[in-house]
Each structure stands twice: as structure tokens, then as C-alpha cells.
Nucleic acid binder design. Structure first.
Lengths: 235, 235
DNA sequence: TCAAAAGTGTTTGGCTTACACCCATGC
DNA sequence: GCATGGGTGTAAGCCAAACACTTTTGA
């Protein structure tokens, strides 16, 4: 039998950067690591890739273990392979980022991991190179969301346009003109207007919308233009 | 000492999708695999990640071994980890793509790998999942080149705008209006016009240009617009 | 002189931006 | 009745797309 016998074998892990939106604030889900090394430090949710698992499969499993969610937006970010990144043993990590609607998050399942949602700017420092992963994930999302409607993945099943604008403003750390934003979003024809209004944040109330999933899928790859002059915003 | 002892270790490889342009045709560099499995079949240039090597470092080394080139545009594409992708032993591969000016390619160094340049459309079928990697690399390049001047990386040190247009037409498999293209490229202010002309493809001759590397680096991240309506072109 | 590639000029239309202004309603 | 956020109207201006036209020069 042929083998590649003289080569080094290493551990391969998957780490998930999980972004969530509760209709008001963009957050990130972190866990308190329950084992050595770096026990009790904050970390991304991760795990080793199983013997017969694909990378995507491992990411889905890890996300499911923590949140109880399936069929979530999940995209490979990058592979990280600095030989020193894990002090115990060389581990190559493939990072994925997920975008979820926090309202669907099942708390009970995650309890064993001591998971907690943090506002992006208030998140603690993380183990290994996880801070770097989070930064790169944010950049990727900013890049992609300027051209594709991925942030819709974070929205509750029904939401208002001002809520969506609020999310964009948090992602780009910028103030957006609400009048132009409303028109831009409506012009994509991706939303279905409901009759109900949300009156929690204004007297007049803002109409609720839901995502038209068929159109969403059809138009996902086309280049939209949600953010004016993205080059001025992306750091 | 703490270890992750109950986990599977796997091989980690890097595969390079090497695109080259000779001033006329966009090509891809493939090698004839010199060892089992799949000996004598066409393949991407790849190799295992060394004990103390980063992923980027391994990609640079592999590219150097084959082409003799350093400081080449090299970007991580994606990690591939299907458990069946290598029939001998599970191997996770991190793919990188490189963009090089074929004129600087050093033939002699590569001889031991039986490397050959192929026109993209005439490339042979490749081992494992390498065909898929090439396809995804092409998609990524199409995506990125619509917004950033990466295709300039493929050009010879001096080149004409019609040559550059020719490259764009090959990448997007589309005919571009030369009059608008010339203006678009000039408006980026990324090129320095030389006094010399290339008369090989027309009687009038086309001026040679060189890349203004300072401006190139400065503007690389800004969103340009080389391709009209990219959503209509990208498959 | 004429063919053919390189390059300039000009019009058009769509889309973004900026911002004035109207709407709905709870207090 | 007025403050407040939600939303519409609209004009200015920019920029891409289309394409008529000029330039250059070898054969």
C-alpha cells in the first residue's frame, strides 16, 4: 500500500465566528473554554474535524451543538495555520462565520458551553488567534454586505426597515440617510410588506416586512449597492 | 503535559492554482505528477505543509520550487477537506492562487516537475478535486477583478492597454468596448505612459505603459469598476 | 489610398445624493 | 398641537454605455 508516510500529520479544527442580531444590536457569541489549555478564557466555539467529516459538515455540527440551529448562513472565512497558534499542539484551524437571528437561538442547548452574547465592541479578548479571526470576519462581512444582501440573514422573520438600517449602521459604523436607505432597500424588491406596524420606536410606527426568500436566492449573487462609496467606510 | 490525544491527525497540503499571462493568452501552469497515486496525471502544483511552516509560507515555497519566483501575488482561495478527496490518506488541502507574468517564469527550475502551461479552456482534466479548485479560483478572480486591479499583476513590466483589454476579455469571456475601456483604465491613474509604442498588432501602434506601483498599492482596496455589470457576466 | 487598430468626443439615461417636505400618532 | 421618527418627492450631478468620428501608418 502506498502512503505519504514521511509527512507530518496535524490536527484540523473548525472555529465559528457567530454573529447574531436581536433586532437592535449586533452581537457575537462566545464560549468560556471548559478545558485546558486556556481553560475559562473566552473563545470562539470550535472543535476538531471528525474522521469522516467534511469541513462544512464540521462547521454545521459545531454550530448546531452550540445553538441548536440548522440551515443557518455559514461561510468559510479562511484557514489559519501558524505553527505556534495553539501552544499545545500544532492545529490548523478553518474558520467559518455564521449569521443568525438571535431570537431563534435556543439557550438551553448551549448551557454546557457557558456561551454568552457580547456586543462586538465589548467582547473580551480571546484565546489564540481568535481575535484576528473575528476581525477578518468583520471585514469580510463589510465587504460582502456592500454588494450582497447577507445582512438580511441576521434579521428576525419580521422586521422593519429602520431596524435593518440600524444593523447596517452598526456593521459599517456609519450613519446612513434613512430616506435614501428606505428607497434603496425597497428598490431591491426583496421584501414583502406586511400590514402590521411596529410602534415600539415611534408613534407613527414602521411597517413590518418579511424576506421574499425566492427573490433573495435569485438575486443573491447580483451586485447590489447597499452602501454608498464602500471604499470610504471599510477600514 | 496536556494533549489533544484522542483526536485524529491528518495531512495538510497546499495546492497552487498558478495563472500566467504572456501578453497574449491567459494560461494555467500544471505539472505531471511524478509519484503515486495518480502518477503521470496532470495536477496542480502542491505539497505538504512543513513542520514549522505557515500556510502562506508553504504556498510561497511551493510556488518558488516550481517557478523560481518570489514576491508574486498569492492569495488563499479556500480549504478543501472532503474526507474522500485523496484516495490514499485523508488530506486537507488549502488552495492558493497565484498571478504571474509568464515572461519572468524560469523554465529551467521547473523542469523536474514536467510543468506545462495550458490555455484555460484546453487544460486537461486534473486529479482529485483540482478541477473544482481551478473553477473556484476563476470565479474568485472574476469577482475580485471586477472591483480591484488584480489583473495588472499578470501583465509584463511594460504593456499596452489593448493587451490589458485582451486579458479582461479572456477572464470574463466577453467582448469589451475598447473605447470605453481605454478611458476607464486611464481614469484610474494607475498607469504611467511610456514614449515607446508597440507596433506588432497595429500600424498606428499602441503606447506602452507601466504600472505605478505606489498608486497601485494605495488604490488596491478601493472599489473600482472595470467590468460593466459584472452580474451579467459572471456565471 | 485604404484598411484596421488606437484613441477622442459627445450624447444619453440611469442611478446616487442631498435635502425639502409631508405623514401619522401618542403625549 | 407639537415632537418624533417614518416615509415621499424631487432636483442636481455624476458616471457608465453607446457609438460617431478622428488619427496613424504599413502595405
Amino acid at each position: 500500500m502506498i502512503t505519504y508516510s514521511d509527512q507530518v500529520r496535524v490536527l484540523v479544527a473548525v472555529d465559528c465566528i457567530i454573529f447574531g442580531f436581536d433586532g437592535d444590536q449586533l452581537q457575537i457569541l462566545l464560549i468560556k473554554r471548559g478545558f485546558q489549555p486556556a481553560k475559562d478564557q473566552w473563545s470562539l466555539m470550535g472543535g476538531f474535524v471528525g474522521k469522516k467529516e467534511t469541513l462544512d459538515g464540521a462547521a454545521e455540527r459545531i454550530l448546531f451543538e452550540l445553538t441548536g440551529l440548522k440551515d443557518v448562513y455559514l461561510e468559510q472565512l479562511s484557514a489559519y495555520g501558524n505553527p505556534e497558534r495553539d501552544p499545545i499542539e500544532r492545529t490548523v484551524s478553518v474558520a467559518y462565520f455564521a449569521l443568525i437571528d438571535i431570537n431563534t437561538y435556543k439557550t438551553q442547548i448551549s448551557d454546557r458551553y457557558h456561551a454568552e452574547w457580547f456586543l462586538i465592541n465589548e467582547a473580551p479578548s480571546l484565546i489564540f488567534d481568535h481575535n484576528n479571526m473575528v476581525e477578518e470576519a468583520q471585514k469580510r462581512i463589510r465587504y460582502k454586505a456592500a454588494l450582497h444582501p447577507i445582512l438580511f440573514e441576521l434579521m428576525p422573520t419580521k422586521f422593519t426597515i429602520p431596524q435593518l438600517q440600524n444593523l447596517y449602521e452598526q456593521v459599517y459604523n456609519a450613519k446612513i440617510d434613512n430616506r435614501n436607505f428606505i428607497r434603496k432597500v425597497n428598490s431591491t424588491d426583496l421584501l414583502i410588506k406586511l400590514t402590521e406596524k411596529d410602534k415600539s420606536s415611534s408613534k407613527r410606527g414602521a411597517f413590518y416586512y418579511t424576506l421574499d426568500k425566492t427573490k433573495y436566492k435569485a438575486k443573491f449573487q447580483s451586485f447590489l449597492n447597499f452602501i454608498p462609496n464602500p471604499e470610504n467606510l471599510i477600514s
